[in-house]
Amino acid sequence: MRLHLKTTVQQDFRHVFDAFDEKLFLALSPPYPRLKLLRFDGSAPGDIVAVEMLTGFSRHCWTSLITEREVTDTDAYFVDEGQELPAPLQTWHHKHLVSKHGNGAIIHDIITFSTGNKLLDQLLYPLMLAQFSMRKPVYKKLFGKA
Rank of each mutant, 00 (worst) to 15 (best):
H15E: 15
S29Q: 15
A19Q: 12
Y125V: 00
Q10N: 15
T112M: 04
V79R: 01
G42K: 00
R135L: 04
L119N: 05
V98P: 00
A130R: 15
D121I: 02
I106C: 08
A87K: 03
Q122S: 11
D21R: 12
N117Q: 13
G56S: 04
G46K: 11
I110S: 02
Q90A: 08
I106T: 15
W92F: 05
F20E: 01
G144M: 07
A27G: 10
V9D: 11
L89T: 01
K6M: 06
F78P: 06
G104Y: 08
V16N: 02
R34G: 05
Q90L: 14
C61K: 05
I107D: 00
S114F: 02
Y77C: 13
L24G: 03
E84P: 01
R69W: 07
P31K: 09
M53I: 14
E70H: 10
L127I: 12
P31F: 13
L85Q: 11
V71Y: 07
M53F: 14
T74I: 08
Y125E: 10
M53G: 12
M128G: 03
I110H: 09
F25D: 01
V49P: 00
F113T: 00
G82M: 06
I106R: 05
H101C: 06
F17R: 02
P30R: 11
G104Q: 03
G46Q: 12
H96G: 00
D47C: 05
W92E: 01
I66Q: 13
K145I: 06
K145S: 13
A19T: 08
T7G: 10
T74W: 15
V79P: 13
Q90H: 12
V16Q: 04
P30E: 12
K23N: 10
K95F: 01
E22Y: 07
G82F: 09
L127G: 03
L124D: 14
R69Y: 07
Q10S: 09
L97I: 06
D80H: 08
L129M: 10
I66G: 06
K140L: 10
L119K: 04
Q122R: 07
N117Y: 11
H94I: 02
T72Q: 11
T67G: 12
P31Y: 09
K23A: 11
E70G: 03
E70T: 05
Y32E: 04
T55R: 10
S43E: 08
H108W: 04
K118P: 03
M1F: 09
